[in-house]
Amino acid sequence: MAKLSKRQKDDRKAVDSNKTYSLDEAVSILKQHARSKFDETIEVAMNLGVDPRHSDQMVRGVVLLPNGTGKDVRVAVFAKDNKADEARAAGADIVGAEDLAEQIQAGVMDFDRVIATPDMMALVGRLGKVLGPRGLMPNPKLGTVTPDVAGAVKAAKGGQVEFRAEKAGIVHGGVGKASFSEDHLAQNIRAFADAVIKAKPTGAKGTYVKKVSLTSTMGPGVKIDVTGLSA
């Protein structure tokens, strides 16, 4: 068994693994123990009572965090002519059509989000095997296939987070940085949890939100009292 570092020992002492903490307590603990030289990301994980292998139990959506993510999101946009100009004016990092598709097929993907105008989806659809597994495929339900490319770019840059249930029924997402104030982190976490709760699929039976935990990049995991997550 690997030997625990002094920091890991301190983290274990600070958190009772058998206890669920209030959201405010959990945020306070994580901020106190985020002592890395870089600004650690705060992430929430929600264990849901769903089986995403069934189409009527898939959980997926987007949420605009009220205080942003603290992350510089690079956005690529598939658009032409006036729509391409609108995307650039809104702050898109990469804008293109066939040239962007060739770049992606060559394995060059220096971006975090892909947006496309509807008329570009015939081209983008051919990239499904590359973009799909990375969670980057534009989707009209998520607002990433839209004629309003300017609005989509601004949302992506302004704190919009996509979420999707993984095989085990877990949804997770970055909800801010350790440098955020406790109030801002709590607001973001409640907004994220509220969006996931509202995305409850019709096929979900029994307890929907089973467990919620919060962690930072290098910090301990802290279980949160689910009943205190309402926005």
Rank of each mutant, 00 (worst) to 15 (best):
D24C: 01
E40T: 04
F38L: 15
G68H: 05
S36E: 13
R60A: 03
R35I: 13
T69H: 01
N47S: 14
A26P: 02
D56L: 08
E40Y: 05
D39W: 09
N47A: 13
S22A: 08
K19Q: 01
V63P: 01
E40G: 02
L64R: 08
F38K: 15
K37F: 09
R35K: 15
N18Q: 13
G68N: 05
S22P: 00
P52M: 12
V63L: 02
E25K: 10
S28F: 02
V50E: 08
I42K: 03
P52C: 04
A34L: 11
L48C: 04
D39P: 09
I42C: 04
F38C: 06
L23A: 03
S55G: 05
D51R: 11
D51W: 08
P52L: 11
T41S: 12
L30I: 15
P66D: 01
V59C: 12
G49H: 06
S28C: 03
G61P: 06
D51T: 10
H54K: 15
V59N: 15
N18G: 15
E40A: 02
S28H: 11
F38M: 14
Q32V: 07
A26S: 05
A45R: 06
G70N: 02
E25R: 10
L65P: 01
V63H: 05
N47P: 00
Q57T: 06
S28R: 14
L64M: 11
S55E: 11
V63A: 04
S55N: 11
M58K: 15
S36F: 10
P52Y: 07
D39T: 10
E43L: 09
T69P: 03
K37M: 09
V62G: 00
V44Y: 01
G49P: 01
D24V: 12
L64Y: 01
L48H: 05
P52W: 12
N18W: 12
S36H: 12
G70H: 02
V59Y: 13
K37I: 14
S28M: 03
D56S: 10
A34C: 13
H54E: 13
E43V: 03
K37H: 12
F38N: 13
G70W: 00
D51K: 14
S36Y: 11
D51F: 03
G70K: 02
R35S: 09
V50R: 08
L48M: 10
V27I: 15
M46A: 09
P52S: 13
A34N: 14
Y21T: 09
H33M: 13
V62P: 01
L30N: 15
V63F: 08
D24E: 14
S28G: 07
V62M: 06
D56T: 08
L48N: 05
N47G: 04
G49I: 09
A45I: 02
D24F: 01
I42V: 13
Q57C: 03
K19P: 00
